[in-house]
Simulated scan of single mutants.
Amino acid sequence: MPSKAYFWIEDRKGKAGFLFWKTLMRELCPDVIVESKKNNSELVKAVKALQDRNNQYIIVLDHAFDNLQVYREQKLLKTYADGKDNVFLLSIICFEYLLLEFDKLVDWIYAPDDEFLIKRAWAVKAREMLLPMIRSGELNYTSIREIVTNDNYKKEYNIEQLSARLLYDLTRNTGFEISKGKIGDCWIRSCCEWQERQEDDICGLENNRMSISEKMRAVYQGTSLSKEFSNAGLEVVL
């Protein structure tokens, strides 16, 4: 029997993260089976209990390095995975950060003359400040505090929470809106299949409409996913 590949995630079925990963894998790796383990702890337990050595398992656990509980779970996960050569861990902060780092994010969600570019200039700038710090690996917490102490943020956030909040602030009231419980249709459908689309809802893809397959390929190529999938030996349909 040919071996199978499983993609294990912590996100619950129906939630934004689950719908994103399900869509992405359907378009890029259609033979890979996406399974929800409901939460961090259950995902770690599943890897610990895994006895199967014939199939491939790709594991996605949020890598929020400044969240102590998540850090501990990451250490446990790595311990359980190290002895299993068919288990591969993806190093991804969270799916919200993945979309936040997407190189075409701002170009997609806003039309060139969109008033949101002015109204949300602070969020665009915050993103431009945050991404280089994360990518360099040399975190400047003073600069991060400058982002989170902005008048728009009144509480302390870890990197996962900050990524999710910033992505929401950039995408809210658009077809690309993302919150913990919702993912906009424009991330999981072909262009202009957004059911709640109004006549004046115009994004950066208005003159270059894309299929969902084209969108997912662009996300793959424009984020750290290409590196992570390559490290895990995942073959992608491009």
Rank of each mutant, 00 (worst) to 15 (best):
F20T: 00
G83H: 04
I134A: 08
F18N: 10
E199M: 05
T174V: 03
Y153C: 02
S3E: 08
L68C: 10
S190H: 08
V32E: 11
T149E: 08
A123P: 01
A16N: 13
R189G: 01
T142E: 08
K84P: 00
I178P: 00
K104G: 01
L90N: 02
W21N: 03
Y71E: 08
G184M: 10
T149F: 02
Y157S: 05
K84D: 01
N54S: 12
N67K: 13
G184V: 00
L90T: 03
V236T: 15
D103Q: 03
K75Q: 13
D200A: 05
I109M: 10
C29Y: 06
E35H: 02
R197G: 13
T174Q: 09
A64G: 15
V148Y: 15
G233E: 04
P2Y: 12
A121P: 02
G204D: 10
S179D: 11
I118N: 15
I178S: 11
N55Q: 10
L43G: 10
S143H: 09
P132L: 03
V44H: 11
S136I: 03
Y220H: 11
E228H: 07
K48N: 07
K119Q: 10
Q74V: 07
H63M: 02
S41W: 04
M216C: 14
K4W: 02
K4S: 13
V219N: 12
R189H: 05
N150E: 08
W187F: 05
D151A: 06
F7E: 12
I178R: 15
D107W: 04
D200K: 13
C192W: 08
M25W: 05
V32I: 14
I212W: 01
S190W: 04
V124H: 14
D66G: 12
K125Q: 14
D151I: 00
L50M: 12
R120N: 10
L50N: 15
N67Y: 03
V219L: 12
A46C: 09
E160S: 15
T174D: 06
K45G: 06
D11Y: 13
R217G: 01
R72F: 05
S41H: 13
K4M: 07
E138C: 00
V237C: 09
L234S: 12
E196M: 01
S136M: 05
K227G: 07
I33D: 01
I134C: 09
W187V: 01
K215A: 14
K48H: 09
L105R: 01
E214D: 13
L100A: 15
K155C: 03
A16P: 05
P2L: 15
S213H: 09
N173K: 13
S91K: 14
R127C: 09
L61S: 02
I109N: 06
D114H: 06
I147D: 14
A46F: 04
A121W: 07
T149H: 05
E42T: 14
G175Q: 10
A111W: 01
K75M: 07
E42Q: 11
K180P: 00
L170A: 14
K119S: 12
V70A: 15
E228V: 08
Q74I: 08
K22E: 07
M133W: 10
Q198I: 00
E235P: 02
D151F: 04
A16C: 07
C203I: 00
A46Q: 14
W122V: 10
E128L: 06
K15R: 14
L43K: 11
Y57A: 14
T223A: 08
D103K: 03
